[in-house]
């Protein structure tokens, strides 16, 4: 069942002589429960695609549908709420709020939604992420791997349909990287979520259900590679 559909997505930066096309007429579709890896050289447009999928940037043209909702036809506020409820982001540089503890960082999307937290679920998440004894620590008191786990926890907290991860292991050593990917895979499977992940690491890409290769803002010659 299709959860995400992209139609003729184009993103250009700059104007006139300085215009750069980061994404050029990209179309693709991703099914529910799928784990897709996006690969490509630096500057190929991977991150731009991910940001457009998550609704944090605006396309120059084209459409993105999540659960058949045309994301960029939504009003600003509706888009924020959709992002909060349907999308979970994991960043390379963790991007945690430094004044909040690990648990509070995780809870933030729920709190923004004025929703009541599912205590059992959060406890389960903390346990899954191995953060039970670290939940009251500030980000500055955590290691890189632990910070990324918090970031994953935050992405999962609201039980979103899609997890978008932008090189989540880019700053981590191989042991931590493997653990993080395992964790992501485990959780999307457990909670029936869709995972789209950018990576440079072919070993990680191999773990995906399919690999989308991007070169110069277009889906590569191999197109969508099913591995």
């Amino acid at each position: 069942m299709e959860i995400l559909r992209v139609e003729n997505l184009t993103k250009k930066y700059g104007k006139k002589d300085n215009e750069v096309t980061a994404l050029n007429n990209v179309s693709l579709s991703i099914n529910k429960g799928e784990f897709a890896a996006i690969v490509g050289p630096s500057g190929s447009g991977k991150s731009t695609l991910l940001h457009l999928l998550g609704g944090v940037d605006h396309p120059s043209s084209g459409k993105v549908y999540i659960d058949n909702i045309d994301m960029y036809a939504l009003k600003e506020k509706e888009l924020s709420i959709l992002r909060r409820r349907k999308v979970g982001f994991v960043f390379q540089s963790y991007n945690l709020i430094p004044v909040l503890t690990a648990e509070e960082n995780m809870l933030m999307p729920i709190l923004l939604d004025h929703a009541k937290e599912d205590k059992n679920y959060i406890r389960e998440l903390l346990k899954l992420l191995g953060l039970e004894d670290r939940k009251n620590h500030l980000p500055s008191e955590l290691s890189g791997g632990q910070q990324q786990r918090v970031s994953i926890g935050r992405a999962l907290a609201n039980k979103p349909s899609i997890i978008l991860a932008d090189e989540p292991t880019g700053n981590l050593d191989s042991k931590n990287s493997r653990e993080i990917i395992e964790l992501l895979k485990y959780s999307v499977k457990k909670y029936n979520q869709t995972l789209i992940l950018i990576t440079h690491d072919l070993n990680i890409a191999k773990m995906a259900d399919r690999v989308i290769s991007i070169i110069d803002g277009q889906i590569g010659e191999n197109g969508v590679m099913d591995l």
Binding site: G88, F89, N95, M108, L112
Partner: peptide, 11 residues
């Protein structure tokens, strides 16, 4: 970051 994880402008 707050905006990315779904905070509205008003929030």
């Amino acid at each position: 970051i707050l905006r990315a994880i779904g905070a509205t402008k008003g929030q």
